[in-house]
Design a protein around this nucleic acid. Structure first.
Lengths: 220, 220
DNA sequence: AAGGGCTTGACCATGCCCTGACAAAGGGGA
DNA sequence: TCCCCTTTGTCAGGGCATGGTCAAGCCCTT
């Protein structure tokens, strides 16, 4: 997620909101600074006015250049119909008028990503699972998980609050014909907890339900 | 029971198996054909690949549309973890890899229906017992119970007003081959009363019937 | 051959469960 | 009413099942 915005206060606010929502954030203060970061980005939040050139100019170069598809959300101080039309016609996928609520921003971004990538994302607080790519991130930082770990975590996170026995987990994640100790599940839970930075006393995500099994903690 | 499968041979085989097991079977060969039949179905057996669109697409539309809860068993030729994760993450309740034994199918379907329908809740005034999750709450607050405590309380709460001897409780909750003092029951009743915040003089839930045993107090 | 992922068995900490002992309460008879 | 016996409440300690953790080995991929 690339954030191109020259005003520090706005940049900080948006950045924090994005990270809270599980995005990894790159920043740039100018069109020039943004250009080399584009190839890292899945989407761009672009200010209309930038110190070196109008954001819309950058957008135009992107569209005619190597990034014809990259989702762009345009931030503008002017909310006039005229600007809106201009922005969209020049290749923005959506726009948002300042001042805006961060929730609004997040919601639009979500919609944008969904429309653009049709990627299936599973978000649980700071934890983000990209089910299509089998990639995970925590608080914006990429989280390297193995296949089993990812599959187990994704399965549990699918229904927060529901408790699964080790046998159910083995069947769902390992396959119905799997033979092996139920304790294997424990081991993977251990690995996951470590990678997730869980406090052994008060896990944020993976809870043990003594005598039964494990569950993903409900939101809140 | 709605069966969505384009290959006639498979469809026939599964259909016969389902009917032998006492299910009424609706059939569809495509996603499009399946849609209007959904509202009749108690559960869906859905092929991953269909002539008009992937079964998983249909599933997605169901989940986001009018059938967020309908149990779905996904049939897939691919048994890879990746597909499994994707399928389950998109809202399937279970999956089965082709080729499969019809017995296997029936067994899973059975489990599915049981799981779907059997979210049994037991409510006794402010006390709420979720028999599936083995979770209890009192007046809206979660009530942490151990396995034994929960089993004992749930058993007594099944029939309020009925008195059980310690021997009956031991047999029902501990198992018929259990050896041990009947006084063990007392201990667990004690624990339960404490957790339930009972007034020793006038218990709201767990009553002692002197000379006989215990009972769950009748409502009112 | 090397490396990483997966699995397993072993060992250890924790907390549940059970028990035995003692205190308290109920109930019947004089 | 008082006494005594039975029944139940309560407490604390120990055994044991359960889960956490570690390390070694297997297997697959590179």
């Amino acid at each position: 997620m690339l954030l191109v915005e020259d005003e520090p206060a706005v940049r900080l606010g948006v950045r924090l909101a994005l990270e809270r929502a599980g995005h990894r954030v790159l920043e740039a203060e100018s069109a020039q600074g943004a250009w080399p970061l584009l190839k890292e980005a899945e989407a761009v939040i672009l200010d209309w006015m930038l110190p070196d050139e109008p954001g819309i100019k950058l957008l135009e170069r992107m569209r005619q250049g190597p990034f014809p598809e990259l989702p762009v959300l345009l931030l503008t101080a002017r909310a006039e119909v005229r600007d809106r039309v201009e922005g969209l016609s020049r290749g923005a996928d959506d726009y948002l008028a300042k001042p805006f609520a961060t929730e609004e921003l997040l919601a639009r971004l979500e919609a944008l990503l969904r429309r653009a990538g049709k990627r299936k994302l599973l978000r649980r607080g700071p934890l983000l699972l990209d089910l299509e790519r089998m990639e995970a991130s925590l608080g914006g930082r990429p989280l390297p998980l193995t296949r089993r770990e990812f599959a187990l975590l994704a399965f549990l996170a699918q229904r927060p609050g529901r408790v699964y026995t080790r046998e159910e987990l083995l069947e769902a994640v390992w396959g119905q014909d799997y033979l092996g100790t139920p304790r294997t599940v424990d081991q993977h839970v251990l690995q996951l907890r470590e990678k997730l930075g869980e406090d052994p006393k008060a896990p944020r995500f993976l809870e043990t339900v003594r005598g039964i099994g494990y569950r993903f903690r409900e939101a809140g």
